[in-house]
Design a protein around this nucleic acid. Structure first.
Length: 444
RNA sequence: GCACGAGUAGCUCAGUUGGUUAGAGCAGCGGUUUGUGGAACCGAAGGUCGGCAGUUCGAAUCUGCCCUCGUGUACCA
């Protein structure tokens, strides 16, 4: 008889997906609670939309392909393609269009949620991650744009970052549009290539980035990227345009003016900020960290921005509601958390239970009596989930860092008292059952 | 997608120019201690050496292809 091959299920995770452990989750909870407090303070409504949307509602993906929309997770549901959302902005536009008559105008909402992207994972970049979005819908006022920058700063600082740790960069589509006019560039393809090159100045430096404006660039791995084929004098014009310290577009000037009213200073005008080419129409923002971020192996990695946004005046009108302007900002919470864990020594400790040792499983009733007293007093507690040697039980309690254990064996039961051992100090105290909770609270 | 690097026990890694039954530390399990953790000691267990094919008398080691992970780069709503 043939030996059957054991087909063990894989214990590996799909590429780009990760388990998240308690230390990270505690920081996440902390960040989220800060976000909620700030958003309430700034007067935003809380919204949640589903993970799935009809594919054509959240993107321009064509359903005639085998699998629509490279980059998103999609499947066919009763002959209609649906996709896991890849951001929170597209669902917002859909929500606004759908509930157009009911929502207050302008509409301010914030949303926290997981988003999915079917693309190659990178450092600090997964295929499933948590995003936070705050948007103003239905207003042209640049006060909204300005306030988004102010609010994001307040959130980051509440989470423990200093002003020197991050910068909010601002720019405007209008700046690059003016530049294109000046250079007499009309080809969309060329515009896109130029914008992408500008976007890389930060990371590559001007010398490398300008190769992308010209013929092209070979990176250190040997990969070649075609450039925008601008002439040297045209590149020079761009170089000079980028050098200006003072913004020359009205929208940015106005935003900066509003910043002054808010006494907000931690911004920088940076015309090389580009962001999403598809839909931003006016001012754009990007939040960057000013410190190095390392991966688990201790290597410094290209971390990129932790968030950004801008004005997208066409998104809602795509659904047929005409002329509905919007502006928003989003941050990648996992990235913020990853960076925060390196920057700050968080003292967020998980709560661990007091553990009642099991001497004899026939005494379960006795143990539960003690357990109930503790739990009624809202003291985290448990009965050792199993049976076996006390040594084993102690080892586990030690490993999960219980504050203490309770011994309630035959001797103690007879005397109507428990023996409490503080696991940090090793000190043991006998406590009358009737004084149990007060004494325990005192001893931990 | 392209490039470079890496895959050996649950984890971190060693493994000489190809040579018998592939090692260590930690973790886990059992014991020294049948009611007391963190330490020590003893013992047993744990591996298709990422996969497939090839070269060879012989492959963890050499070659090819594939997979996965990491980093860079491209794309990024």
């Amino acid at each position: 008889m043939q030996k059957e091959k054991k087909l063990k299920p894989s214990k590996e995770l799909p590429s780009g997906f990760v388990d998240r452990q308690e230390t990270e989750l505690l920081i996440r909870d902390f960040v989220i609670s800060n976000i909620k407090e700030v958003m309430i303070k700034y007067g935003f409504q809380y919204l949640e939309t589903p993970s799935f949307e009809y594919t054509d509602s959240i993107g321009k993906f064509l359903p005639d392909k085998e699998r629509p929309g490279e980059g998103v997770f999609s499947f066919k549901d009763e002959n209609k393609w649906i996709s896991l959302r890849y951001d929170l902005t597209a669902p917002l536009a859909r929500y606004v269009a759908k509930n157009f008559n009911e929502i207050p105008k302008p509409f301010k909402r914030y949303q926290l949620g997981t988003v999915w992207r079917n693309e190659k994972p990178g450092p600090g970049r997964y295929r499933e991650f948590l995003q936070f979005d705050a948007d103003f819908v239905g207003t042209n006022s640049l006060q909204a744009d300005a306030e988004l920058c102010v609010l994001i700063s307040e959130i980051l600082e509440r989470c423990g970052l200093d002003k020197s740790d991050y910068t909010v960069k601002i720019s405007s589509r209008k700046f690059t549009n003016n530049l294109f006019k000046k250079l007499n560039i009309n080809s969309d393809e060329q515009k896109t290539t130029i914008l992408r090159a500008l976007d890389k100045i930060d990371r590559l430096g001007w010398n490398e980035a300008q190769k992308l404006l010209g013929e092209g660039r070979k990176d250190k791995s040997g990969d070649y990227t075609k450039g925008a084929n601008l002439k040297n004098d045209e590149i020079k014009i761009i170089e000079n345009a980028l050098k200006i310290n003072e913004p020359d577009t009205e929208d940015i000037l106005e935003i900066i003016n509003i910043f002054k009213a808010y006494n907000f200073k931690n911004y920088k005008f940076d015309p090389s900020v580009v962001r999403g080419l598809e839909y931003y129409t006016g001012p754009i923002f990007e939040v960057n960290l000013n410190f190095e971020v390392k991966n688990l192996k201790g290597q410094t990695i290209q971390f990129g921005s932790i968030g950004g946004g801008g004005r997208y005046d066409n998104l809602v009108s795509n659904f047929g509601n005409l002329d509905y302007p919007a502006t928003g900002i989003s941050i990648g919470l996992d990235r913020v958390i990853f960076a925060l864990m390196q920057k700050k020594d968080f003292k967020l400790k998980a709560t661990r239970p007091i553990m009642i040792c099991v001497f004899d499983k026939n005494n379960i009733k006795k143990y539960v009596e003690i357990l109930n007293k503790l739990r009624e007093a809202n003291i985290s507690s448990e009965i050792y989930p199993g049976e076996g040697k006390i040594k084993k039980q102690m080892e586990r309690a030690n490993k999960i860092e219980c504050p203490g254990v309770i011994f309630y064996g035959d001797d103690e039961i007879k005397k109507a008292e428990v023996k409490f051992r503080n696991l940090k100090t090793g000190k043991e105290t006998s406590i009358k059952v009737e004084n149990l909770t007060n004494e325990i609270k005192r001893l931990i």
